[in-house]
Amino acid sequence: MRELNSVKLEFPAKSNNESFARSAVACFAAQLDPTVDELGDLKAAVSEAVTNAVVHGYPEKMGKICVRCRILKENVLEVLVKDWGRGIENIELARTPAYTTGGSDRSGMGFTIMESFTDSVKIRSKPGKGTAVLMRKKLGCR
């Protein structure tokens, strides 16, 4: 699909980069004139995907995370969050609300929030190779 603008971020999987990543994506999205609710939803969805890469992608060793944003036609923002970490064994199961491998510190609602706050969520993953989460959201709907 033709892109009208794009930006790419790359950072180590440190938890203090979670707030940086969602704020940076929100800043980039501002050119699409989103509503306050849309911006809040976008930040939450990005926060979930990036936190997953930090927490589940790299449970032990430190690795890198890539976030690529593209503006597509008709005011659609696309966000790709990628890690080269542990990967997901069963994607269907991982998407189930309240499913978590993270114990009581996690709620298992990350994918549910990504799904309810964006228009589409695609997940590609291979155990031992990494995970890519692709989200699309139309912005500026008033």
Partner: peptide, 16 residues
């Protein structure tokens, strides 16, 4: 000023 699903886990844990 911002909350994600980590806040849900926090509330659930306090509830328990």
């Amino acid at each position: 000023t911002f909350m994600d699903s980590s806040g849900i886990a926090l509330i659930l844990k306090t509830h328990r």
